[in-house]
Write a protein that binds this DNA or RNA. Structure first.
Lengths: 250, 250
DNA sequence: GTCTTTCAGGTGTGATCGCACCATGCGCAA
DNA sequence: TTGCGCATGGTGCGATCACACCTGAAAGAC
């Protein structure tokens, strides 16, 4: 998911207003949207962020088919915000609408996968390299915590928590330096391979990824940009390699 | 005002029963790229592409404010497809909605500009390098034509044609190899700096960009990947430098 | 004349309705 | 029992209406 649009609205992350959320399901009775809480983001935005989260954490399986009305009911909004949110994700190649019939995750071809991998290897090590000087002790602490959550999720068998922790780990690094454009590009990539990343979890070799994270942490402590870039590079290459092993479509 | 279903089903005049129709387009089983018949793209798609074109060719000025209803009237569609298209562009950071009041091009800060430039320099030379082996004589011919159109537009004083030709030139190179993901990322970047690129036109130094294009063409003829990457790199750096010279917001 | 107030118009957002399309399945006929 | 045809339900897309909000300028008060 998107990391707090720093330069825009100072509005708090809105990550956890479940209380108000439950109280204000505008799901009105015929009459207007009411929308009395001006601080709240738009419904479209909320749905958009929720779907992004689900994609990045692999909660939307590649084969599954979605529908705007179905999602609307599930998220307790009208189909309208869902339609808009889905449209945005379609523009980002994160979803696809097939012949105006159903919504699903785009197929993964070998060529597309290589393309995706190439882009990641181009952007992410560089993003990490650039961000390194901006990683402060507080940041490092968060990184270690994310890494611990990741280890725990491997032991505990919580796939979704694993995905979330992995996402947190990477974007805590990249996001240390406020380079929104590059961050956004990388997020777009994660949106696309996220659903497929799920198969990595629990696979032989997943443990290796932990080593890469350890190497990254060590590189950060030593302020060694090259070592950090290499650790990220290897983490990506190995992780994506685990996906690539499973037979792709074509 | 507009009269309804224009773009929809022109007519089934050919009287082709659905059964025989299935003969031509092999309805791919299950999921696949498929690329539904381009004949009847949705209105949203049409508006989306039109707005993208306008952004990339600098036809939407940084300062200008847009409105859904205004665009709808201008493009002769209802506000609905415009709203969706704008939403997609907002997701790509190509447009912005200010406090639910008006739509405009996002402000360009120095940091954002540097970020954008950095991403371009990371992706585009590499995209060109990768595409080089796939550039065939027919492609090269198109490239030369685009370059000639670009020169002509400088003489003729047609800013929009200049922008379009420049876009064509770059994406003819990158697109020689079908790497859709990387292409999409680069397009996202162009969408963001496009409106600001306009100020480059006619500026002192614009002629230098022509030299870079000539160098690129020569590199392609000689199949020199490094030289091509360097030409693209320099072209970007100089072109963006021309933008950077003009006082940015902060 | 200047300042305050109000109101009208316009905006993005959300809800609801209608349409063309397609897949599935029930019912009728062979 | 087996096969075909039509009806029904569900889909995405587009249009239209309703609402909260904000801005601009005109109208009023001093």
């Amino acid at each position: 998911m998107r990391k707090t649009v720093v330069a825009r609205v100072p509005e708090p992350s809105a990550a956890v207003p479940p209380g108000t959320e439950a109280g204000a399901p505008v799901r009105a009775s015929g009459i207007g949207p009411v929308q009395d809480d001006p601080a709240s983001e738009s419904l479209t935005e909320r749905v958009y962020r929720e779907l992004r989260l689900r994609l990045v954490t692999g909660r939307i399986a590649p084969g599954a088919t979605l529908s705007s009305r179905g999602l609307a009911q599930e998220l307790d909004v009208s189909p309208m915000p869902v339609r808009e949110a889905v449209g945005r994700l379609v523009a980002e190649s994160a979803l696809e609408v097939h012949s105006k019939r159903y919504i699903c995750v785009p197929a993964m071809t070998r060529a597309r996968f290589q393309d995706l991998l190439h882009c990641r290897l181009l952007l992410e090590p560089e993003a990490a390299r650039l961000a390194l000087p901006f990683i402060e002790p507080a940041h490092l602490r968060l990184l270690v915590e994310a890494d611990e959550r990741l280890s725990a999720s491997l032991v505990g068998g919580d796939a979704q928590k694993y995905m979330q922790s992995n996402f947190d780990f990477h974007f805590l690094i990249y996001g240390a330096r406020a380079q929104l454009t590059m961050l956004h590009l990388i997020e777009t990539l994660w949106l696309q391979f996220g659903p497929w990343m799920r198969v990595v979890y629990g696979r032989v070799g997943t443990a290796h990824l932990l080593d890469r994270h350890k190497q990254a942490l060590q590189a950060i402590r030593e302020a060694d940009a090259e070592a950090l870039a290499k650790a990220i590079h290897d983490d990506i290459a190995e992780g994506m390699g685990l996906i690539g092993l499973t037979g792709l479509d074509p």
